[in-house]
Design a protein around this nucleic acid. Structure first.
Lengths: 350, 350
DNA sequence: ATTTAGCACTCTTATAATTTGAGTGCTAAC
DNA sequence: GTTAGCACTCAAATTATAAGAGTGCTAAAT
């Protein structure tokens, strides 16, 4: 054991160079290559010693005896956490993002454009979750009677979206009755988050029901049906998946199939994205860190976005672990910020 | 030129056997194989003559000198049109289809299940278009005032689905005004197809506007905005695309990427499916017949489905040209019929 | 006039043998 | 601690060889 096996400045510098080089070239890096490209004048032999240490510490890995080395997930992690020098966004790209995220034409459309932006500018997959309904505020609710004691519930949220749902009530209600129910609910619940409303309604029902009038009880019961959990229906807009087919890392047909299946079934991806929402700022999963076999060869860079200062969704880029972190991290960061800006109720039309 | 180069019974029989064999084995079929499996006792040499003729006529094709032969698109076409002996659906499959297409829980859900059914039972891709809005009947329409002279339009169609849309009106309308507008429109347009409604509204506007009262004119103008064409937004539910990755015919990464891109962009697929809607019964595109390069290696088997005896959509299976036509054709046929049944307003709740 | 046997020929596929080159680890000298 | 040197390993590319499947054509048989 020649070196002291401690991460000194030199070995870190070499690790950094190796990873940068590997990211740009895509091929295992050998000692000779590294020696030539380094300002610190070291012979390949010395570098081999350092690399052997880095391998022992789990940051590098050799595909086979006579190949160079490639970074492991931990290697990338170290790189991303403390070695990385982020590159500012190119101005052409920045203006493109600005341009696409300023037209206010419906949240769904904006979100789709954000997703497309993420995939097109990175040539990987872009993903944006739809705003979490739960966290979004109720603006207005309205009921319409249908046949057979069914009621159409229409509610408008914070983000200016209209949602609707049909519920089955215990008895038929007239239009004017429903009107009253609507008025009552709007008065007390408007402006609160759907989650808060649901909670409040449930509490109301559990409370002593004697205390409130029959008509109010009806209102609360209807509200309960309207805000019932059902399937929370979290969803996302994924674009550019096909870009991932180009990467040799994911070339294996079986691997690729599993990856695309995961995209279609959505639940695993949603779970990951949900985790990202809990943290503020840019969040990164590298390779195995995600905990899902399918994503072993992938990295996920995300950042959350908000409506009315409330974090309601996440957006990000999915690609091979070997990706240009130094460019993509700031890109994801700024896209999230601009998306938040685009989604927030603009002052002109309240 | 030994044989008369005419499609006699024998050559057709041989073509049929060759295609059947190729579909099941996936490998070019040679004269020896065919000779052994035929009841008509012919030597390989004779069969070679016949095959040479079939090749000259464009029904077969040889990947290279010393491989057997495989069918061309025309070969498959002839096979499908006049040689095929369809196999009845297996009872286990049939019962599965029945089972999945009887729960009445929202059209979107039924359609998704139909698509999944198509892909799972064939191990290829399944596709179902959403009902064409235009062709579906208006059941009820309702308006709600929003801020800034905007109006929320809610309409319920035939297929029990609720749609909504926000329009910008020329002036603000009160709730009661809108109520009247709704009453008026429901009275005259309810039960007619959206396309018919749109047409009628446009005609009304072009007619002499003096003849109708101001309030009716308002109603018609609002209706015009509500039924404005916008994006017709045709769409489909595609499942099991990833199954297509298993087929060696589509193994080429580039090819596969283009195919998946076509699925994502949707327009080409929609164009094809639209064509299928024009014809009644099962419609088949084999390989190049579709006219799109991406689908050169694919076949598409479709059948249309209806709501209230009006054809409103199409469903089908997408797979490699080498697919089990004799099983899939009846399967698609019956699935379409059962889907129609499932989507039609059930007599129990009008 | 068909059909068939026979044969030379073609072309893919599989296997093994060989070479090349990149890169390593270790040792001994600097 | 660093480096030169060298033996060694392994993947990838190249080549050679053989095996096998299938063809087209011709001439004989039916």
């Amino acid at each position: 054991m020649s070196s002291t096996q401690v991460l000194n400045g030199r070995s870190l510098q070499l690790l950094k160079m190796l990873i940068e080089r590997y990211i740009s070239d895509g091929q295992p890096i050998g000692s000779r290559t590294l020696s030539k490209n380094s300002d610190l004048k070291l012979s390949p032999a010395t570098i081999r010693n350092v690399m052997a240490d880095l391998e022992e510490m789990g940051f590098l890995h050799s595909p086979h005896t006579s190949a160079g080395r490639i970074p492991t997930a931990s290697g990338y992690r170290l790189f991303v956490d403390s070695l990385l020098t982020v590159k500012p966004l190119e101005s052409t790209e920045l203006s493109r993002v600005h341009q696409e995220l300023t037209a206010h034409d419906g949240n769904k459309a904006i979100i789709s454009r954000a997703s497309r932006l993420l995939s097109e500018l990175t040539q990987m997959a872009g993903v944006v979750t739809l705003p979490k309904r739960e966290l979004v505020c109720l603006r207005h609710i309205e009921f319409l009677p249908l046949s057979n004691a069914r009621v159409l519930v229409i509610f408008i949220t914070n983000e200016q979206e209209v949602h609707n749902k049909i519920i089955q009530t215990s008895r038929a209600f007239s239009a004017s009755e429903l009107q009253q129910v609507g008025n009552y609910l709007n008065a007390i619940y408007s402006g609160r988050s759907l989650a808060a409303v649901r909670e409040s309604v449930l509490k109301e029902l559990q409370d002593d029901q004697q205390r409130i009038s029959q008509s109010l009880l009806d209102a609360v019961k209807i509200a309960q049906l309207a805000f019932e959990d059902e399937n929370p229906k979290e969803d996302y807009v994924l674009t550019g998946e096909t870009n991932l087919m180009e990467f040799s890392e994911l070339a294996d047909r079986d691997q690729l199939k599993k990856l695309f299946n995961a995209f279609n079934q959505k639940q695993d991806v949603i779970y990951l994205l949900d985790q990202c929402m809990k943290t503020n700022g840019v969040q990164i999963f590298i390779g195995e860190e995600s905990g899902y076999k399918v994503f072993d060869q992938c990295s996920l860079i995300t950042s959350s976005y908000s409506i009315s200062d409330e974090v309601v969704g996440v957006l990000g880029v999915i690609g091979p672990t070997r990706m240009a972190y130094e460019k993509i991290i700031p890109f994801v960061d700024i896209t999230a910020k601009l998306l938040s800006a685009a989604l927030n109720p603009k002052p002109t039309s309240p």
